[in-house]
Write a protein that binds this DNA or RNA. Sequence first.
DNA 1: TTTTGATAATTTTGTTTAAATAGTCAGTTT
DNA 2: AAACTGACTATTTAAACAAAATTATCAAAA
Lengths: 205, 205
Amino acid sequence: MSSGSDQQDIKREKILDAAYNRFLHYGYSKTTMNEIAGDLSFSKALLYYYFPDKSQLYIAVMRKLAAEYILLLDQKLEKFDNLKEAFIVQIEMKHNFIFKNYNFFDFFRVNEQNLPDTIWEIITEIHERELVLLSAAIKLEAEKGNIKPVSNPEELVDILLDALHGVKVSAQLHKKLMFPQKEHLDEIHAKRLLLLDIFIKGLMY
Amino acid sequence: MSSGSDQQDIKREKILDAAYNRFLHYGYSKTTMNEIAGDLSFSKALLYYYFPDKSQLYIAVMRKLAAEYILLLDQKLEKFDNLKEAFIVQIEMKHNFIFKNYNFFDFFRVNEQNLPDTIWEIITEIHERELVLLSAAIKLEAEKGNIKPVSNPEELVDILLDALHGVKVSAQLHKKLMFPQKEHLDEIHAKRLLLLDIFIKGLMY
DNA sequence: TTTTGATAATTTTGTTTAAATAGTCAGTTT
DNA sequence: AAACTGACTATTTAAACAAAATTATCAAAA
């Protein structure tokens, strides 16, 4: 894919790493190209030799993160005991991913309305991988005879993922006490399990 | 409840009406007390005779809207043929409510983080009424023997409402073409029906 | 080919001033 | 006395502009 030398690739990776750390700790708008260069004792101009501009650098980091995420998802969903488990794994993985990189994603919140096309492509790529993996899980479960045959498993996965993501802490709780305490996560987890239980029961004969 | 004269009440209502129309068309921050007074040919000082300040006036309008919403919800859910219908009615009513009053709610978006307690109370009131009505629907369905007896119907309703609200158009579509076309609403509607179908099937014996 | 220091171009931030708006109040009308 | 107003003050927002920070470029060096 990359046509540069090994040395170039290594340096590129170093820049991506340094950029990621800055973006993660301070967010997109509050990290400067100078700081990233400074962390590596490079000149700022060198960053522009490897990346056309700041936003392209950000997107490159994002792409790397997404690749890692998809790889991990593949590994975790390679083998699973049952449907519920597969979905729980997906939901919690994505939650962790977003939670861990919360600051990194401030780019999304700032550019809310018009994200670059490239970003959308990355998001779509992740989503499609999720659909493939989880609809495979559904098909398998149908083949094992545990649930009814499903005509359009992708649609089902799409809906179920939305539904699971929609689950929140009850209004009374999150009213005052922002931000998600462990207690809240537990509550959400329990609710999701219940939703999954009922949903999957609804898929049975 | 109100201790003023009939004349006072009428004038209060007129102010609430004029304020609502301004808030609805121009949003909270872009309507001035002068304009509201002007619409009614009142002096601005009179508004302050009836309401302590602008935000209290807004909240009073909000309270009125909420009361109307709850009234309508009561009427519509008084009699329903089946569970699915009851939930669909709720979901679509709330969607219409928010859609119709989209501009009015810019107050929420601006004060995102720290909404006044009073606003939270109103939101909670609406939500609790929804829980009461829909969990009653679930209990009834259980009594009729159409679904299994449910130990905690409120929790179930809470989860199901979240799940239904979580349903979105698929990523590919809403990627470019903001804002919700009719086509999108239809897609969401269909998905919700499917989710409801499966969920309720999951509640059966 | 890779790297940099110096510099240009652009964006963000701070500051001042003017304008718009919220909110008050003494006094008038009913 | 209750309902109401015009004229006033206090705050908030907007505009204009300068200063600072930051992105981005480029000719020249390693």
